[in-house]
Amino acid sequence: MSGEISRDEVAHVASLARLRLDDNELDTFTEQLCVVLETAANLNSLDLSDVPPMAQPYPLTNVMRPDVLVPSLDRDEVLAQAPDVEDSRFRVPPSLGEAP
């Protein structure tokens, strides 16, 4: 594991995360992420092969509830907060091809 991340990798990660960065931002973020990842590299000195990973602190699994109808959120109230709505649905720009 390297403690560093290249400018190209930062650009790639930004695109995966649906973020657009300009050239200055790319430079700054690359430098800052390198520092954090160098600190993370401290963990390399530990032999953790026998230690199991921990995803969360309290061991609850398969939390179920009784199959009983309960009121859900008011649809109109929810839709009133959306940026764009049509016929009781969230409206978005085209997902394929060019805009009409």
């Binding site: 995966l16 973020l19 963990l43 953790l48 199991p52 990973p53």
Partner: peptide
Amino acid sequence: MLGTYALSSGYYDAYYGKAQRVRTL
């Protein structure tokens, strides 16, 4: 971005997986 990188293919075990083991420790 840091999180996306730590979870991305090829780095998951080295970063996120390792951090989860430190958590157990």
